[in-house]
């Protein structure tokens, strides 16, 4: 049996900001159903990696294959709708209601009709427990609620893979749980996810694979049990002992 084709295949990705090399030769693949946590210290290039995968930053070199096809040659709008993104600072559209936030992309990018877009939006708002707030505006919601709406907005585009860029880092501690809870149920529902996170509990318990990044390269990549109990690299060990002591275990 041949191995299933990955959704994303990143090879030799590099990103420089001027003379500063943020990503130095990153290669890995994301398969359907993977829940990959990307961990590492600040400045290790985790967020830049996600932003390059979604072309919010143009990679300096390297290639991204989406289902075997070069993402550069694909229609950007189509690629973006298949590779969704959830941001640290939510980035809800402040001029739209919760419902309109979740239908705008469907109508404008996927050309769905109003009824279909609304049904879909309400289905996913229900999944994240925010359907009751469909008429509220972002300014009227708490941080955790905003992030749940942002997740529903991304899901309504029917993405193949969802990128999460530190989704709980901007939240008050008591709201982290509600967002992680939603992400956990999405992972259990089979959504393919690539999550940059500082929540070691999530990385250890929910993800199927953990990537540890250090100074712009993947230092270690493997099963969460192996990485958290028996890290191979000294720098992984050092990082984990630092953050786990800090109590960031969810």
């Amino acid at each position: 049996m041949t191995e299933q084709q990955p959704i994303l295949e990143i090879s030799h990705l590099k990103k420089d900001f001027g003379a500063h090399q943020v990503l130095r030769d990153i290669s890995f693949a994301v398969h359907s159903g993977d829940v990959i946590s990307v961990i590492g210290s600040s400045g290790s290039g985790k967020s830049t990696l996600l932003r390059c995968i979604n072309y919010l930053e143009e990679p300096t070199a390297g290639q991204i294959l989406y289902r075997g096809r070069n993402a550069e040659t694909l229609n950007r709008a189509e690629y973006h709708s298949k590779v969704g993104m959830v941001f640290q600072s939510f980035n809800l559209f402040a001029n739209m209601t919760v419902l309109a936030n979740c239908t705008a992309g469907q109508k404008l990018v996927l050309r769905r009709g109003a009824k279909e877009a609304e049904d879909k939006a309400l289905y996913f708002l229900g999944k994240v427990g925010m359907d009751a707030y469909r008429n509220a505006r972002p300014a009227q919601l708490s941080g955790g609620q905003k992030q749940r709406v942002a997740i529903a907005r991304a899901l309504a585009m029917d993405p193949d893979v969802l990128l999460f860029d530190e989704p709980t880092s901007a939240l008050d501690p008591e709201m982290v749980g509600e967002v992680l809870g939603v992400m956990r149920s999405l992972a259990e529902g089979g959504l393919t996810m690539l999550v940059v996170t500082h929540e070691m509990g999530f990385a250890r318990d929910v993800s199927s694979r953990v990537i540890f990044m250090d100074q712009g390269v993947i230092a270690e990549d493997g099963d969460p049990r192996d990485i958290f109990t028996a890290p191979k690299q000294p720098r992984t060990r050092e990082f984990l002992s630092r953050v786990l002591q800090g109590g960031k275990t969810e």
Binding site: L56, A77, G84, L92, G105, M157
Partner: peptide
């Protein structure tokens, strides 16, 4: 207007 909203618009495929 906060730059993040524009990025979010691009991230769901808007031109």
């Amino acid at each position: 207007v906060d730059k993040g909203q524009k990025e979010a618009a691009h991230a769901i495929g808007m031109t």
